[in-house]
Each structure stands twice: as C-alpha cells, then as structure tokens.
Design a protein around this nucleic acid. Sequence first.
RNA 1: GCCCCCAUGGUGUAGCGGUUAGCACGCGGGCCUUUCACGCCCGUAGCACGGGUUCGAGUCCCGUUGGGGGUACCA
Length: 447
Amino acid sequence: MKLRFAPSPTGALHVGGARTALFNWLLARGSGGELVLRVEDTDRRRSTPENVEQIFDALRWLEIDWDGEPVFQSDRATRHREALDQLLEADHAYRSTATADDVKAFKATHGADRGFRAEPESEGAVRLRVPDEGETVVHDAIRGDSLFRHVHLDDPVIARADGSVLYNFAVAVDDLDAGITHVVRGEDHLSNTPKQLLVLEALGAPQPLYAHLPLLHGPDGKKLSKRHGAASVQELRDAGYLPEAVRNYLALLGWGYDDATTFFDTDELKERFALDRVSRNPAVFDDQKLRWMNGRYLRELSEEDLTRRLEEHTGREGLAPAVAIARDKIQTLDEFWPLVGFFFDGPADDPDAFERVIGADGGRQRLAAAREALEGAEAFDVSGVEAALRGVVERLGVKPKAVFQPVRVAIAGTTISPGIFESVSLLGRDEALARIDASLARRPESV
RNA sequence: GCCCCCAUGGUGUAGCGGUUAGCACGCGGGCCUUUCACGCCCGUAGCACGGGUUCGAGUCCCGUUGGGGGUACCA
C-alpha cells in the first residue's frame, strides 16, 4: 500500500487538508505502507520556501511524518512533457486554440447532449481526447461507483500553449510514476477524477484505488474559512490546542470506530482506522467539541509535561506552582494566562469587580478582618491560609463567600481565580498583605 | 445551465428490514462548592418531503426539495 498527501502550498494547512493528511498517514502507518509527500504546484507560483515550510511545520506539529524527500511537482516538468508527447503521438490528445468562451458557446447550444470537442490544430493548448461513447466509472472505497458518461464530458485542457501541464494531467502522471496504490483526498476532487482516469488509461496505466473524503464546513454550512475562527492547523496551535487532541478530534470528523468510543490514542487510531467506516456526509467543524476534548487531554497530561507546554506557549517561566492549582480550570493553553497572570504581573484591573465586591456594604471591613487573620496566621501554606480565613468567616458569622471574594478581588483584581487558599498561599504572605493593603487604601471608607 | 456527491436532534455520529432510534458535544436543571471551572446526576432535541417495494422502512427503489462539489490555458 502506497499513499500520498499532496497539499496545495498556500501556506496555511487547512483543517480539511490536515484531516486528509491524517487519514493517509493512519492508513500508511497502520498497514506498514508508505506515505509520500508531494507539493502540488505545476508552475511553482505558490510553493515559496516560506509557504512550503509552513505546511511541513504544521504536519510535524501533528506528528505526521512522511517517507523520503518531499517531491515538488514543478520539478517534474521534463517527465510531464514526455508523457504529454506520448499522448500527442498516440492521438490521445491534440492541440487546439479554442478558448473558454468557445467552450461556453458550444455548451450553450448543445446543453447536456454533447461535451465539448475541438478541432485539432497545429498549435494551442493540449486537450485530452474523451471518447464519444461509453463512460468512465470511478470506483470509490467510500462512495462506491460513480458513473460519468463521456457524452457529458468536455475534452479537458491538460497543458497550456506554452507546454506547461495542468494539475489534472500532472497528478495522474505523478501518481503513476510514484506507484501510488491508494488515492485518499477531499471530495472536491471527485468530479475531476474521470479526467485523471482517462489520462491514466491513455497512458496504459493501471488505476489506483480512490477514496474521496467528505468536505468540512463551518457552522453556517458554508465552506470552512478564516471567519469561522481557527480554520488552519497553525491557528489551532496558536489558540492553545494540543496536537494529540486535534488529531483525535480530526479523526472523528467523518469517521467513527463504533457507537461508544470517543478517545483514541494514536496507536489505536492506526490500528482501527479503516476506509469502510468513513462517512459520506459533509461534516461541520465544531470548535466547542474540540475545546471539550482538548480539556480532557489537558487534564491527562503530567504536571511536568503540561508545565513545559504552557511555558512554551506563554513564553514565561516558573509556571509549575500556578499550573498545579489552575490546570483543572482550563480547556486550552490560551486560557491559562488570563487565569493566573495576576500572580506574576499583579492584579488585573477590573473596577467593576472591585466596586461590586470590596466597595459593597461591609466589604472593606471583612477584607480588613481577613488581612488581620492572614498576618497572624501560623503557617502560610494552603491549610494555614484556610484555617485563618475560615476563622474569619466563623467570627463574623457570615457566608464564606463574603470573606473569600473580597480577598480574591484584592489579590487577583477579578472575581475569577484558582482556589482562594491556594492562590493566597502561592502569592506568599508579604505580597498578599501588600495587595490587600493596596485595595483597602484604594478609596476612602464610605462611612 | 450541465455533471457528480450527500441527507438521523443545533453539531459529530451509531443504526446495515422488526430498537422505548443509542453515544458524545452543546444547551437546560440539579448535586458538589469560596469565584470560575472540573466531576457526577437528570433532562432537552432527530430519521427533510412525497410516492413505491414489503406483513413491516431511518434502513431498499424512484421522485421532489435542500446542501455541497465540479464544470478554468487554478490546484
């Protein structure tokens, strides 16, 4: 079994493309087969080093590897020319100067009864000769057979007048030369498959097995794009998703193992993934479910591992203690800093929270009482802080919240933070007292 | 316009002729509780429509509608 992943080098690796890469990779790695990478760009207009490196980088992040050196389609011009000459000589293709407008005009008069056929000329673009009779059947591992009648097909242009070849021709030749046995790609290629099959046939080559994956859509049913949030692997990474979670989620988009299993590690995926259980329906990329899944993966990481990733993601160091008390509250790496930044950069500025909690009736008094208890606390570890603060609650005869929230706002600046005892303890006595003092001094007592 | 693909709750899916139509996300409620989360429990919501075939259809066939893709001297 030999497969290929052939991204268009536009820079961003779209999540749809990532899923295609993943499925190819799972198939190859699960069967001991081979996966090659080919950059699709017949004239090399888009495959700039930057674009190509971005694609490779995204694949590496997902831990999708390939065999051998990546092939650039544009480096195969000589071979493409040779195959083109072969078809021309055998009269499987011919030259024509007919333009898109000519084709349009032809179709306007003939409708569905006849595909476009041009008159052979001595110059112009090269068109493949589609037989007048018969049909080409695409045997698809996911969809079964799709039948395309030749009368409906136009003679497709396979090379420009300057001799450079077009995608549908190049891809067939490249797959043939590489000995690709399974072509797994997006459904947007299904309608063009007969052209590629016709090229293969004219070349006297065998057909690979095709499998066309359902397309991915945004929540509005339209094609997934930037405006739907993270539409590329790069954006997913920047948003703080874990590669293993993305892999698991992507695998579930259009594929399922049974009616109960949701979580698969990569080995299970490789072992269980099969084309015959791939869905035919287009799927909507649901970032809410990805978030949920990411949170689950996050919580399974060891503290060391999570800390390392968080430090890498935030560019900060010494995060371990904060990770320990905040890890259960985040779904993505991105959510970490807003929750714990106050430990390192001082309290957040949320005047509304201050007013509501500390400015409220008796807020200052309770905060002052808490300050006193904290100052006199025997130990300043988590249980020491807890004992001190709970003591205040008891003495004042109020709800725990009435004491904890003012302290929280004083040290964090907002009403949201990790556990209050853990947070105060981590901050340390001096800093905690200083922040409480700053809050108490913030505005004169309103009677 | 023409060609091709697709159709189970809001979303991803299970189902492969007889099920109280299952699971997960989301959403609603509850428990837990110092905030936010996590976790746990309960609940909400679905076979696009119309014809067939059959004793019996979400499951098979046809049509309609809807969605998507292709139709480039793009990939």
